[in-house]
Design a protein around this nucleic acid. Structure first.
Lengths: 203, 203, 203, 203
DNA sequence: AATGAATGAGTATTCATTCAT
DNA sequence: CATGAATGAATACTCATTCAT
């Protein structure tokens, strides 16, 4: 098929490709900008960095909140996919702890997003909440499998595990912890999650 | 002494007392307002709730940032005092874990402040950083004492402990975790901090 | 004739038909939308309701003002035709008063258009003014005939009659007068236009 | 009392005078600007012409709608006062017709205001509606007195009279009728309102 | 000829901060 | 020292209009 053929297929085609590219670029920029600048960061900033006019941003995302939501949804979805991919991994314990570590490391570069990890759960009004819950469920699956494999103690449940996941993620982001401190903090949490190999006082 | 002199002195003193009261009321209001409303909350709101004119707020705190800093400093100082008071407590382990719990519970009602617990550390420009470090040092003292008493494992250090303290505080605040979940999450962390009563592999 | 010629001709003709249909549909929609929504109502709204792309609207009418003008012209022309049709009616008085009533009732559903009835007169720049004057002339003819028939007093002239026509039309539209009030208001005006059946002071 | 005395009376006094002056100037400018520019005319334009910053306008009138309302209220109130003042005039007929004429002449310079004469009636939500009704009631009083004095026919009622008042006012404004035409149009209306001195056909 | 994505100027509104009293 | 009116820069969002397909 020639270029002209493609052209004939109807007006909007190439444009639609451009539009999709723009939408994508806007989301990428927004993820960075809202990650770095936190809650503030103007929509105009996003537009400028994406190399589009301000109105283009609003054409794709009718409000600033919608843009933020879209960023979150994409992010949640990606993380969920990664979590789900780990479900097939041979070792359940490794899968769980690796994902925990990965999430924390990842969040470290996306401040405001980490901020939102939990906020979004409160937004029971839609997409974002749904995506957030999707991630939470995937973490739940990883956790259960790790518990069944004896890699995580049986008496912990998702709520507190997820809370710690969020807590460490958000703080890693905000605090700019250096890698070593982050690793050592996780070690503490992971030790707390490990099954007690022996309870001397309890014997 | 002339009449005008007396007026100046007396007036000045009375004024100073009033001013101090105003300053204090403004700080109280700001702590509540910034705690609850989080990032937003205008300076005018603070003035209104404190029952003073907007200009009075700016007379006491030349910028909004300065006001926030002052709130933080007061807050850090109070927490540090509480930590220091616990240093004299009979049981070092109890002292350490109680303070950890207290801080987290306390932060739950002061969102934005908790937010700032660490941010302030970054503001290396003065008072706030100093106050923040004061608190950090006090926590360090509690930790060392607890380690010496064998209540906390020896191989953890202040940076990661403090990071976990901040992480759980901030998230407890933001997430509105119910008390039970918060307690269970802390149990995990505390277990991670407890010395391994038996190291099977090491035996 | 070459193939391409035929294509151009045939295609062009079909296109022209489609285009004409589009133009017409756009005008219809615009008449409704600008009538109801008044001053506001975006061009995009018109396009959407007409089932065409925004660019199509601008292809037919290069500016929003041009679209409004076209709506007005069509409207003025229709009203003029109706007025002219009444010129052949048997009774000149009935013709005049009926048209007056008709215009007012009609305007009641087309706010912004009524608004423009006079504005357009000011747009001395062309079509719209011309169409407006066409209507005005037709009303003038109806008036003169009614005066010659003794149904309207001789000492009134077109400017004031037309002004009253416009005034009652526009207000009927804007005010949402119920029919009865509208009728009673017109009765007053019509009485004022009626020849004095007796001039006591003049007797 | 000296100037310094006034100053002593407490901080805000002189400022309050200035503020009142500003408020007044803003209202004046808004009346002109919204009168001339109609519905459009930006708030910034008002600020600029009033010689104040944009925020000052919003300090006095928290929304643009509030500003418009305030303009209308003031206008309605003034007109009502004028109408009420005429209630004491010796001749009821003269009072009624003079006020009618006055209102129309006055409206001629305040387009959008005239626009709103009736709209405001619809805003049943407050001040503006109240002020509008105040004017309407005053016109009603003038009308009744004129009817009792035999200057206006008995079978007309306020709704249609008020409708005509509004209609002629608004159109006089919009149309930029020259004075003569306006007078002649009013003559027609007034004749319609006059009692029938003789009904020949009815005899 | 039709499409719809892109554009940027324009609008109402908010907020930290300054001044005159 | 306290006040609150004034300020203007900043922000989210809209709309008429243009351009590439």
């Amino acid at each position: 098929m020639s270029t002209s053929d493609r052209r004939q297929t109807g007006g909007g085609r190439a444009r639609r490709v451009d539009a999709e590219a723009n939408r994508s670029r806007i989301l990428d920029v927004a993820e960075q900008v809202f990650g770095a600048g936190g809650e503030s960061a103007s929509t105009e900033e996003v537009a400028r960095l994406a190399g589009v006019g301000i109105a283009t941003v609003f054409r794709h995302f009718p409000t600033k909140a919608a843009l933020l939501r879209a960023v979150l949804v994409r992010r949640f979805d990606r993380l969920r996919e990664q979590a789900e991919a780990l479900l097939d991994t041979a070792d359940p314990g490794t899968a769980f702890f690796d994902f925990f570590r990965h999430l924390v490391a990842d969040a470290a570069t996306k401040i405001a997003i980490g901020e939102a990890l939990l906020d979004a759960g409160g937004d029971s009004d839609g997409e974002a909440a749904e995506a957030s819950n999707g991630l939470r469920r995937a973490v739940g699956a990883l956790l259960r499998r790790a518990q069944q494999a004896g890699a995580v103690r049986d008496d912990v449940e998702l709520p507190e595990v997820y809370a710690l996941l969020v807590a460490t993620s958000r703080t890693a982001a905000h605090a700019g912890l250096d890698e070593e401190v982050r690793a050592r903090a996780l070690t503490i949490v992971f030790d707390g999650l490990a099954p007690h190999r022996h309870q001397p006082g309890a014997g």
